[in-house]
């Protein structure tokens, strides 16, 4: 872990000696992180589903207004960490609303503490699938969180439209999910996550099912939105380039049970479509994949 930290710093050095055109005036993202109070703090969190250990001793501080990406091999438990942050594992255990569904295997339970200082405010959640109600228009889908909070129709409409505008989907407000492309569905899902103006946005591989062009488009839309609004964002993804593009910091996780093996700062500054091919982003991706491959290799030899 220490080694990975030093690698992350070396990335920052590379960037300083080799300054990218658009963002030289931006403050170093690593120093910015340390100044802000944490919005989410995980302390020695472990989690098991029955006998299967999924998360092992994860400690993580996520500052308010930061964008953090959790990266790891599939099935490593990164989604579980996100769900712990969002309080969903607890939720799943207490909910008996799913008739005839197999018991959610949370009997193993959690140790440690997962504190999210947004419990009073709302939390936005975007899933791997859009999860839109097929019988509702895009606008009605986006307004759903407000509707369940008991907001009036006028407020719901105005704020849902505003959220759609933020995701550049206002034109499709009256359409139904089956009339949307995969990318538009995902935009609607993120607009719904944003509609109650959450301080914390949790993203569980939201663009995993999209084609690459659409994915890049949505990555840029999300990053631009975050740059202007600075909510706290936590992204789970298995794509390291996507993590480097979207987030300020990449947390690399080992294969199951997930443990943190490296934390890497990504190049700071605004993103555009050319960021994908920038050298500093490439170097960051290389560092992160090296850390990930090393962790996988280490697990295999054990």
């Amino acid at each position: 872990m220490r080694e990975a930290h030093s690698r992350g710093e070396s990335i920052n050095r590379t960037r300083r000696t080799n300054p990218p055109k658009p963002a030289t005036h931006m403050p170093d993202s690593a120093s910015k992180i340390s100044q802000l109070p944490p919005a989410i703090r995980l302390q020695h969190v472990s989690h098991a589903f029955g006998a299967v250990e999924v998360v092992r001793d994860v400690s993580l501080e996520i500052p308010a207004g930061s964008f953090t990406a959790l990266v790891g091999p599939s099935g490593c438990g990164k989604t579980t960490i996100l769900r712990l942050i969002g309080g969903l594992e607890r939720l799943a255990r207490n909910s008996d609303d799913t008739p005839d569904a197999p018991d959610t295997p949370t009997r193993g339970g959690t140790t440690g503490s997962a504190l999210t200082h947004a419990s009073d405010a709302t939390m936005g959640f975007a899933f791997q699938e859009p999860r839109l109600l097929p019988w509702r228009s895009v606008l009605e889908n986006v307004a759903l969180p407000l509707e369940l909070q008991g907001e009036s129709l006028a407020v719901r409409r105005a704020r849902a439209l505003e959220a759609l505008e933020r995701m550049q989907l206002a034109d499709a407000a009256g359409r139904f999910p089956h009339q949307l492309s995969g990318g538009m569905k995902m935009r609607a899902a993120i607009a719904r996550a944003l509609v109650s103006r959450p301080r914390v946005l949790l993203l569980d591989e939201p663009f995993g099912a999209l084609d690459e062009v659409t994915r890049h488009e949505l990555d840029l839309a999300l990053r631009t939105l975050w740059e202007s609004e600075r909510f706290t964002a936590v992204l789970v993804t298995h794509s390291i380039p996507e993590a480097a593009f979207l987030a300020e910091r990449i947390v690399v996780l080992s294969p199951r049970p997930a443990a943190i093996v490296a934390e890497i700062a990504t190049p700071s500054g605004p993103r555009d479509l050319h960021t994908w091919t920038r050298d500093d982003l490439g170097a960051c991706v290389r560092t992160a994949s090296d850390a990930l491959l090393a962790a996988i290799a280490e697990r295999r030899t054990r």
Binding site: G86, L91, S95, R131
Partner: peptide, 8 residues
């Protein structure tokens, strides 16, 4: 998934 959404 929708069930979970409503619970959240």
């Amino acid at each position: 998934g929708l069930n979970e959404l409503f619970a959240i």
